[in-house]
Write a protein that binds this DNA or RNA. Structure first.
Lengths: 313, 313
DNA sequence: ATATTTTTATAGCCTAAATTTATAAACATG
DNA sequence: CATGTTTATAAATTTAGGCTATAAAAATAT
């Protein structure tokens, strides 16, 4: 049994296809076929059920894949230990970011980071919280930036900053007149929210006293971007909540519709999250340093008491 | 990097010597030298400091060895998963037993076990609790039988039975006249105990109200075997405590010196212990089954309320 | 200091194993 | 039933792991 064989098993299990898996591994398909057969012979058990199309894992196969993932990931840690020892910060690093953080945070720190750590090849992907969690677990992401806490046992979190929410209340809305508003004023039934799966929505919902009654809605519209959300709100379809950083680059006319919360302001906790195995920890810490440095000062509410919308256990 | 290379690193780290490590791995010394050099080249770091005699690990080397042990052990689990699936119970199994359990328990279950599971090659070693703990952690033991609880995070325990203590009180001792005795009668200052490191001693000490005052002792004698303990006791050097199973095969004259405890009788908890990774779990469960079956009936005190000498947290 | 033993590294060779190309067989799809 | 897709097999090639022999280095004995 070799680490390579286990790696091949993982590739086939993931792609459910020998040919595609072979490409991903940069070897030919017969190589995969033979190596996996050899492993199956040695263990004297079928890992894949080749009669099913597409190929499926057997029951033992599933357990073997879990363990194989373990071993392969742990084997990466050896190079990681060496890198750490040498203070080397480099190599490929896959970072996920949720949509409501991506456009505001990324431009702020990216230039800075690549300047400071030119040897790191950052690969950034916009993903939902749910996608991020699976990808961190299966090793397709090294880390991610998302709203926390997640309360997932195999994922660790390091808080980067707290981002207050700001109400966006268009003219004509019942709350438009009040200068500052309170959390208790919120009513989920006249609020526009981001589409499901975006954690920002989860955060907002938890803020509201009244839960949306899905049975008697006149309309249901969930946008994928905050920009659309603002436009819909302008059309009089309801108020919305914006994360503070988003309010920095909206136009002046729309800025008039911003209503800050009375203290303690509701906020979301934004963290860098990573697998509990702490692989590539040097890069994660480098990211944390750069982002924390940038954010210090960027968020005006530093001294404001905030309440987190997601319950901390 | 291959699992074999990591295994070679472990062997050299353990033996602090390439030649001896090579023997243990059943390969020649040049093979080890080359494979380890190759790994060091690939990682671009020295794992061993060859200038020191005997050979030492470098700082990174130490971390690499820890991780390598991890990976090698986890790789064994793959065959284990297959075995478990097939219900196969066999292969080599290294079991440690503490000295005060060995002579009484082993003859009771060994014959039974090898008859029921002929494919398991049991290798049994008499070891102190301390030795057992290190060897379970470094993978040199698959499981062990010892007095519990150990409260060690990386070791799991399964209670096999509770073994009551019986007082052995020679003629002339202040307690010899009383038929049944009570825990509160014990005084550690006139008791003979097994040598340090044997967990039985730890158990007994915890039973006693008065802790031995080491400053004003007239003599200090700690025997390595229960047989010597009885003989010393006969010489009038003090009373002692025997685990119940030991009282079954002492001679009739000495049996007169046995004094059972009032209920609840003090007892020790005897468990099969193993690494938290649960490697070779089928065999551990097979052992548990056989021993539990044998012990049922062998211990007469089954319905007696007992108190454990070691505090349960 | 020099010889001897012990231990690790190097060189060259051999064998086994991994990978490739080419091709066949099995299977699904139109 | 023909065609495209996918996996398995065969033979050739390259690579890697292992061995023997031996050199080099270090420790120990003379």
């Amino acid at each position: 049994m070799t680490i390579t064989q286990l790696y091949y098993v993982l590739a086939v299990a993931e792609n459910q296809n020998f040919t595609k898996a072979a490409e991903k591994c940069f070897v030919t398909q017969p190589t995969l076929s033979m190596q996996i057969q050899k492993l199956e012979d040695q263990l004297d058990v079928q890992i894949f059920d080749r009669s099913k199309k597409p190929i499926e894992l057997t029951d033992v196969g599933r357990k073997i894949v879990t363990q194989a993932r373990n071993i392969v990931n742990e084997s990466y840690r050896i190079q990681d230990i060496v890198d750490q020892q040498k203070g080397f910060i480099g190599g490929e690093f896959k970072l996920g970011i949720i949509p409501t953080i991506m456009p505001t945070l990324l431009p702020m720190f990216l230039k800075n980071f690549i300047k400071k750590h030119p040897k790191v090849k950052l690969k950034i992907e916009e993903l939902t919280t749910e996608e991020i969690i699976t990808r961190i677990k299966d090793g397709h992401l090294d880390a991610a930036i998302a709203a926390t806490p997640l309360e997932d046992e195999s994922i660790k979190e390091r808080v980067l900053y707290f981002e207050p929410f700001v109400s966006y209340i268009p003219k004509g809305h019942r709350l438009h007149s009040s200068k500052k508003i309170d959390v208790s004023d919120l009513d989920i039934n006249d609020m526009l929210l981001l589409e499901d799966g975006h954690c920002f929505r989860d955060g907002v919902i938890n803020l509201c006293k009244v839960f949306k009654d899905q049975s008697d809605e006149t309309f249901q519209l969930e946008s994928g971007s905050i920009e659309t959300l603002i436009k819909l709100s302008n059309e009089g379809l309801g108020m919305t909540l914006l994360p503070y950083l988003h309010t920095l680059d909206i136009n002046d006319k729309e800025k008039e519709n911003l209503h800050y919360f009375n203290e303690p302001s509701p906020a979301r906790e934004v963290s860098i999250i990573y697998h509990k195995s702490e692989l590539k920890m040097q890069i994660i810490e480098a990211l944390q340093d750069v982002i924390s440095g940038i954010i210090r000062g960027a968020i005006a509410f530093q001294n404001v008491k905030i309440i987190s919308p997601l319950p901390k256990k």
